[in-house]
Design a protein around this nucleic acid. Structure first.
Lengths: 341, 341
DNA sequence: CTGTTAGCGCTTTCAT
DNA sequence: ATGAAAGCGCTAACAG
């Protein structure tokens, strides 16, 4: 029932009583083989439990048929939604998606880029965190295309799918101002993450247009945990020192802020403090006070990223220029910020 | 600056003016090479942008140094937490973790098992969904070890990390009964998922011990979406027909149920209906009504899974027997079910 | 340290 | 259809 530990194409050929090349043909060009021998070969494959060694196949081909997706944070539903979209679309093209989690750490990002490069993936989807653009350009010259996800290319030779984060930040804070907020706090960080600094930029534009103060409560991560600590920072202040509106760089933070706010009996959301998050994850509408948020088309972004990648998977000669797709964010108003109407 | 598309070890040797074997030594046994030539080789590697071709390395070695983790659902924070733990521990052993998402679909699970087998990963972490045990045993004979995650091995020759789901279901429903519930509904499905049927089993044991009715509202998935539809199924009934306690097979479902419940002004949680979820994800304490849940030690489970895998990565002769690690779940009581102090 | 070599498993080509 | 053979890039072993 079970042959040697490593069953090779040669073993299969022997078992089936055919030539080695014929087995390869059955695997790769079945139409070149008569029905009868094809059946014999398949039977032998089944008996021996043969599985094609991808390393050898790749070595020959020079590339695998997977793409890698290095996510900033697997625990952020936004990214897993993007991943979901990527998988759906990749399947359409016969590609598999391997996921990795850089967890906001440049070293881990670098490690996974290495790993995927060594594996000679067809391409990479990546939300860059560290300073990796030179790295990626070299990769590209060596035949591994990168598509930037949730981040614009800014003149660099990559396709990208992103959302206008400046517009998103602007939307969020404009909305808070409309609801009557005058002392707004931005919760988020680190600013080395472009998405965060862009959202802050948009926020401060909206703030300065209306002459509203914008305080920045810098956090070292975009997690529920960080949100909690930002929240308790605020609640520990005397009432008069607290902001009346809080804009969080993502929903995880907002959830954390909400957790710490709702531990204070006498703090009313949105009455005392209005709250806006970012990403509109599934949970946003299920929080203590349903969360106003900025929606990004996450699944569509994943699909688009793969399409852009496949577009670049053509021979250099006929390869189109990299493209940038920018989606517009959308304000989703819920109770956490709704003061009128 | 950039050489041929594929820079090989041979190009490096040429550039550095050393022998091919020396480059290999620099890469794999640096101590066998003098400092000076090592530096020359490293310089050449840098200049040419050489990256070791893992396919070739693997082909030679017969195995990669990654492990694959096939998750039931990337969008469930429980699994990403497990993944996080696995990554942490794998890094300790110099292994990389590649994540894949079977999304509850047996075909996708099979596809990824194939993929990882073709890639000759060192081992697999897997929460089985389809009927894959024969497959996995064959894999094991061919040198790819599997550790079952969130699922016991039940006599099969695999190590496993799981949580006692029957105990968890029992805990949940016993708690509801203690809070005075007498008509309990179980929301979850499909029952083909062992975790779900075990939780139901525990639930019904608790129910029958106290002579409490247990209604099963079967869903086809463990998602927020499915939870919403179960919730509206309940709220559409006349008050007298509604359960007074709901136990959801996971927190995503519970979040969905909560969403639909809280759309009804006059429905009081936990007064009219008490609610218990499962997994105790980060969001559980941030929901409209903070969610009572059954906690599983997710990160620890991931770490343990990798340890069990590494344990099995020894030559067959000295390999220890597979082990089963079973953690006990823990009831975390919050407002969604707390009726008496 | 060098230079050479075999071989991992597969694909592809070629003449038969 | 076959059988033979080259070669993908690497590792590891060898004699010098």
């Amino acid at each position: 029932m079970s042959g040697p530990a490593q069953v090779s194409i040669r073993d299969v050929a022997e078992q089936a009583g055919v030539a080695l090349g014929t087995v390869s043909n059955v695997l790769n060009r079945p139409e070149k083989v008569t029905e009868a021998t094809r059946a014999r070969v398949l039977a032998a494959i089944g008996q021996l439990g043969f599985v094609r060694n991808d390393a050898a196949r790749q070595l020959k081909a020079g590339t695998s048929n997977s793409i890698g997706f290095i996510m900033l944070d697997v625990r952020n539903p936004f990214f897993t939604d993007v991943g979901r979209g990527a998988e759906l679309q990749a399947a359409q093209h016969g590609l598999a998606v391997l996921l990795a989690n850089s967890d906001d750490q440049p070293e881990r990002e670098a490690t996974y880029i290495d790993l995927f490069e060594q594996q000679r993936v067809q391409g990479l989807l990546l939300s860059p965190i560290g300073n990796v653009f030179e790295r990626l350009e070299r990769l590209q010259q060596h035949g591994i295309v990168t598509v930037l996800v949730d981040r614009g290319a800014e003149g660099r030779p990559f396709s990208s799918v992103s959302v206008d984060d400046v517009a998103g930040g602007y939307l969020a804070v404009s909305h808070l101002i409309e609801q009557g907020c005058r002392r707004i706090a931005f919760v988020g960080g680190p600013l080395s993450i472009k998405q965060v600094s862009d959202r802050l930029l948009g926020a401060s534009r909206a703030g300065s247009q209306h002459d509203v103060s914008l305080e920045v409560l810098l956090q070292d991560g975009l997690t529920v945990q960080a949100g909690r600590s930002a929240g308790s920072l605020i609640t520990r202040r005397p009432r008069s020192d607290r902001p009346d509106g809080v804009f969080c760089a993502n929903d995880l933070l907002a959830v954390g802020v909400l957790q710490s706010f709702t531990m204070l009996e006498r703090l009313n959301i949105p009455g005392d403090i209005a709250l806006v998050g970012y990403d509109d994850i599934d949970f946003a509408s299920a929080t203590v006070v349903p969360l106003t948020s900025i929606r990004q088309p996450s699944v569509l972004m994943g699909r688009t990223a793969v399409d852009l990648l496949v577009e670049q998977l053509t021979p250099v000669a006929i390869r189109p220029e990299p493209r940038e797709v920018v989606f517009q964010p959308e304000l989703v108003i819920r109770d956490s910020s709704r003061r009128r109407s």
